[in-house]
Amino acid sequence: MKRRFFFIILGTVFCSFLLVPCVHSGNPFTTQHADKKPIVSFSKPVILSKVFVKIIDLQKYLKVHMARLVRQAETGGSIKPIILLILAAVLYGIIHAAGPGHGKAIALSYVLTQKPSYRQGLIFSNTVALFHGISGIIFVFFIRFITHSSIMGNLDQYTNITQIISYSIISFIGAVLFLYSFYKIVKKNRTTSSINSKLNSVVPAAVIGCIPCPGVIVVMLFALSMDLMVLSLVLGIAISIGMAFTVSIVIALAISGKFALHIANEKRKKQAVNFEALFELFAGLLLMILGLLFLGATI
């Protein structure tokens, strides 16, 4: 029974990967894209759609209020709008990262191939989210104060370059994980140790997160347009912290599930080791495929 459950989940993961379509998600106003067919694939549960719509509404609401608070902060005289603004920015980061993207899927698949502790998982997820935000902050300051060039045109270009680098490395990591898992199975080295000790988890997390977050960039630019440089930086950091919170929850849940799986199969240790070896093999392969699919969509 437990084994059946396990394979259902494994199958779900696999099917999810197969159904992932590849779409470049740049700004349609400033970038030429050949294919703009509506994204229509399969039916989502109604409740999920409603949750998603709520997330969007809340983001819109927060952006309107953040714009108002930035204007209040510009006029000065009170600390209140700044405090409210920072809180709104953290909340915006939490909500923003709850939507699609922000490296959650790749981070999940990476964690599923490993056996991180909660501490390691939190370091991993926070590194993903913080690098996602920080790369946005670096981009804004670099373009604004060093090159003095077009933000929007460069954002697409910069995103494209970082995506190519990031997805190439992700594919490589996937390939390494797959080959290592395959090697373990062939050599009958079915210990529960993973490749985690050999790969520093901060490095892949930084790679996954290095694609700049447009959400951070847009908010920072708005504050910078009023010459509020420090506030702009604070907002970028606040949004990144919010995003780190959301990604951390996702990763913590994934780790809990993995622990649960491990405990459930503890009595049948040999089978558990077999399952985990297969899981790592599949996850490595799928991580590589996902990286290649995204890379193909980006180039």
């Binding site: 993961v13 999810s16 990967f17 106003f29 899927a105 959400g215 847009v218 599930g257 995204f294």
Partner: peptide
């Protein structure tokens, strides 16, 4: 344990399916 595992399945479906798409920025 099963609740945890099912929650992973749910999360995976939700997040993997929609990974490559932009959510509204404008």
């Amino acid at each position: 344990n099963w609740f945890c595992i099912l929650s992973i399945g749910f999360l995976v479906v939700v997040f993997f399916k929609t990974e490559s798409f932009a959510h509204p920025h404008v």
